[in-house]
Amino acid sequence: MTESSNRTTPVRRVSSPPAAESTARHNITVDINGETIEAEVESRLLLTDFLRDRVQLTGTHIGCEQGSCGACTVLLDGLPVRSCLMLAPQVDGRSVRTVEGLAAPDGALSPMQQAFCDHHGLQCGFCTPGFLMTLTSLAERETPVTLNELDHHLDSSFCRCTGYMNIRAAARHALGLAHVEGKPAQGDGT
């Protein structure tokens, strides 16, 4: 977890629009980037839309909304998941980390973010938050990451500008794999 989880942070209540439908609403309490957020949410509100529209954390991007593109990836209790494939009520009592939670409070970039800058790992930036969250989970994991494993994680997000190679170079540097020999994995071996 981030340092901020050790601070005592006040609970922040985010507002919801007035109920426009008869279905149930739910009171949820979520740890988001170390801050305790309370809200009343509709049953059908997606986690992505909750983060963007209610908590005003618009760094989590919406791409395909069916789990394919990876732009909406966030960390749920430390593991990368597609936030477009979760309902907001599902994260009640859990911990969510978004791209806004990566940099230090003084604005200093995380090592993975800095590597993306150093290696031109982003261009338009749309896919970047998803890549950063997935790769941050690898960087913070205790067991070492192999190059093959990195490549399979890079498969999981779409980038349409950089051609992936600069993202791969950034990730290799940040993960300490810069000097490991290996070509990008080809397919799934069939």
């Binding site: 439908e21 008869s22 279905t23 739910h26 059908r44 839309d49 599902q90």
Partner: peptide
């Protein structure tokens, strides 16, 4: 919101 209106219950 993308899904149609629904009720959610955590069993």
């Amino acid at each position: 919101m993308k899904p149609s209106p629904l009720d959610y219950v955590r069993a």
